[in-house]
Design a protein around this nucleic acid. Structure first.
Lengths: 217, 217
DNA sequence: ATTTTGTATATTGTATACAATATACACTTC
DNA sequence: GAAGTGTATATTGTATACAATATACAAAAT
């Protein structure tokens, strides 16, 4: 049996994934300095693939690079985060608007089910599931927008910035906020069903993504 | 006299700029293969900085990279171009909407002057000037949108994709199209002055950037 | 005690070397 | 003649070496 085209995995890619994971899971924290030699010995590779991976990580906004000073884990300040969410809001709104003519009944059903699952997750205070399901919710129309580049762009913003956003510790407040967010989802679904392009776009941009505790798309 | 902070220019940056220029000015054409050794001898540098520049160029969408096959100048097909313009439309629209509360009388005057200069450029069939002035026009509100990340994102899309878009040879048709475009500019200015946020955003997205012969921002 | 200077050490930038893989092209085979 | 095979050559991926620069820290000066 054929496993499809053999995917070539260079050491560079290996290093890239290794560091990206460390950042995502919090082993590497914002402002931490990357020590090339240390990575080399951890993965038993030379500096060349390590540096090539670091350059790409910097290009992807996960690391910051200062000439002659090396790479550090990018610290995203609040201002920057707000700016990114403004962009995500506009792009997610665009995706919804573009998807309207292609959404099927199955899509609506799926979104409706996801909203219910999100409700349950909130009640159980399972915020990991909340994340998962609300990501799926947005992906339903993102997958129908017909613009692959837009999809990639949104995913890339997600990887670069939003991953680093975590929820508040105040569970009481969080609970209330997530409930509001899911009401947004219901409204979004309604607007999509009514095929109100401009409305759903502006709602996503100006209401749903204008939030204090941002969610992941 | 201090010239400000000395800017460090690595060989990697040098190579990056060299290749980016060659692509922009058409010395390197879409689908052309990049020969690392050739670049090395042209610039008298070793492969290491060349490869690091190539990786960044690929990350910035100027080159395409295929493992074990090297780098080629990215061919942007029509579909991809349309997708990018859809994104640019949404982001430029967002920038306009965000700028509305910060635009001054001087900004409006400036935009009005630019519209007139664009008219003259079209009459003289000076399309280079047309490009320049219409870029300035969009930058007026882009500079007031208060979102640095959005500005960078738009500029980056410009660098990566839109540079490769050139005007038709049919001057007759082009003349008419550019006139329409400048009418758009007049309309955009009016909507900005009337502070019609949603209208100007949707107009930029759904009218101005939905064009056959795309312009540069 | 604080700042400045000097020097050792660590880290980054670049060049080079070599192994792994892809490409080109002559040579078969059908 | 078209398609396949084998081998020489070119190109890419990675390791290593060394020079340039930054960092750390001790000694000297204020």
């Amino acid at each position: 049996m054929n496993k499809g085209p053999m995917i070539y995995h260079s050491l560079k890619d290996h290093v890239y994934n290794y560091i990206a994971s460390q950042i995502q899971e919090g082993t590497l924290l914002p402002n931490d300095k990357i020590n090339e030699a240390s990575i080399c010995s951890q993965l038993n590779v030379s500096r060349t693939p390590v540096r090539e991976a670091l350059i790409k990580l910097a290009s992807d906004n996960l690391l910051e690079y200062r000439p002659r000073r090396g790479f550090t884990v990018k610290k995203i300040d609040t201002q920057k985060k707000l700016e990114v969410f403004e962009i995500v809001g506009a792009l997610d709104g665009l995706a919804a608007a573009l998807s309207i003519d292609h959404l099927t009944e199955e899509d609506f059903t799926k979104m409706d089910e996801l909203i219910k699952k999100i409700d349950v997750s909130i009640e159980l205070e399972n915020y990991q599931d909340y994340q998962k399901y609300q990501t799926y919710f947005h992906r339903v129309y993102l997958n129908r927008c017909g613009n692959v580049t837009l999809k990639e762009q949104l995913m890339s913003l997600q990887d670069g910035f939003i991953r680093q956003t975590y929820f508040s510790d105040d569970n009481k407040e969080l609970y209330a906020i997530l409930h509001v967010m899911n009401e947004h989802h219901r409204h979004i679904l309604k607007l999509l069903q009514q095929k109100k392009k401009a409305d759903v776009q502006l709602y996503l941009q100006n209401v749903h993504w204008k939030i204090e505790y941002p969610e992941m798309i």
